[in-house]
Write a protein that binds this DNA or RNA. Structure first.
Lengths: 211, 211
DNA sequence: GAGTATCGAAACTCAACCGTTTCAGAAGTG
DNA sequence: CACTTCTGAAACGGTTGAGTTTCGATACTC
């Protein structure tokens, strides 16, 4: 299953390696800006109304595009949503500042600084809820968290080597302890997240885990 | 707005205090079991398919009940969902064990021990997502979290008086630090929550907050 | 120029679902 | 008994939205 995430129509048929110039087929070429506009409109609509009230017509209106233009690129509403969600997944690179504290703050700031906006908050909640029902969405969410988990593992390993953390520190548990409060604050408490909050959480957890 | 959460039909009109015997009106009385069956079916359907695929027909089928029976009790699908969600909100009483550690463990166990079941997890995610869009649902969620917040405040105050926590401990921050990881674990990591996990989180946070 | 594939807009088909109504019975009142 | 209100089942009306098709126009290749 190559999944709905790929857009097979765009691929240049199965012609064997032609000159890299794309403009082969006759007819009006696809508007390259439309793809981006549709994806962005999808995100906007998703943010504003959640999954429940999400409609393809709304996306078309938002993007200033005909529905046919959307369905020529994505086979279904479902595929469109998945693709749009995928574009939102940031690629957190693992920081290496020399101290656990700064590493963790950097790791978390990248994940939550923009998540504090009302729109992203809405979207995160919607995706989380959808993931329980929709296996594809679950996979997407798992991939994302796995990447952050990997980052945490690297940071913790380096910290142990520097002697900043006990040798038996569980990176997954550490991630729960730090990402949890931030996530909870955004989702449930509904309070904003500033840099000082991230730092406070990291400080408490690191102090609690020491020794 | 007395809100959709009350079911006005059941209330005995506006007759001034009659003998408490209910059986006044002629005609077949309402099946008292139907109410519970409908609410439970609502929860089941909500758990299985989330808000998106939730239909009144499905509830009727699940409860073995006609749709008319549902609509005679609740004015709309929306009101039914809210009432069903309200029945799920536990009433956490504030523990007083004599130690912060045990108080916090008790407070959290009551909130998360059954939340670990796949069904409750699904429902919690769905309600969280819906709350961002639906004001009534947001109010319900806020009430629930506020109650837990109040509990946290009491526990923290007593702990400060006993000298177990610094005098400037912020109860809301403490709640974020403890409930957050548990919530995150259920929602995102998808890993189960046992008593030992709750205790571990509490221990780390208390140690981190001391001094 | 002829031919082809795209564009936005609008109309269409079809299915799902909300909420209402109808119906034949059942369970209470007097 | 007559009368009233509830029951589950089924059908109905109305709306909404997914996905398709049609349309005149546009942009490209040959």
């Amino acid at each position: 299953m190559t999944s709905a995430t790929s857009r097979p129509d765009t691929a240049a048929a199965q012609a064997p390696a032609d000159p890299p110039v794309e403009a082969r087929r006759p007819g009006r070429p696809r508007d390259p800006q439309a793809d981006a506009a549709i994806l962005q409109a999808t995100v906007e609509v998703l943010c504003e109304h959640g999954f429940g009230a999400f409609t393809v017509d709304a996306v078309a209106a938002h993007a200033g595009v005909g529905k046919a233009t959307i369905y020529r690129r994505w086979p279904s509403r479902e595929a469109l949503v998945l693709d749009a969600a995928a574009t939102l997944v940031p690629q957190p690179d693992v920081p290496d500042t020399g101290s656990v504290r700064d590493d963790l703050i950097a790791l978390m700031s990248g994940s939550f600084e923009d998540a504090a906006s009302a729109n992203k908050q809405q979207l995160m909640a919607a995706v989380t809820a959808e993931a329980v029902v929709n296996p594809e969405m679950k996979r997407l969410l798992r991939d994302y968290t796995q990447r952050r988990r990997d980052g945490s593992a690297v940071v913790v390993r380096r910290a142990i080597e520097r002697g900043e953390l006990p040798a038996d520190t569980d990176p997954d548990f550490l991630l729960d302890l730090i990402a949890g409060p931030l996530f909870y604050r955004v989702q449930i408490s509904g309070r904003p997240i500033g840099d000082e909050v991230v730092a406070d959480v990291v400080d408490v957890v690191l102090r609690g885990l020491a020794h």
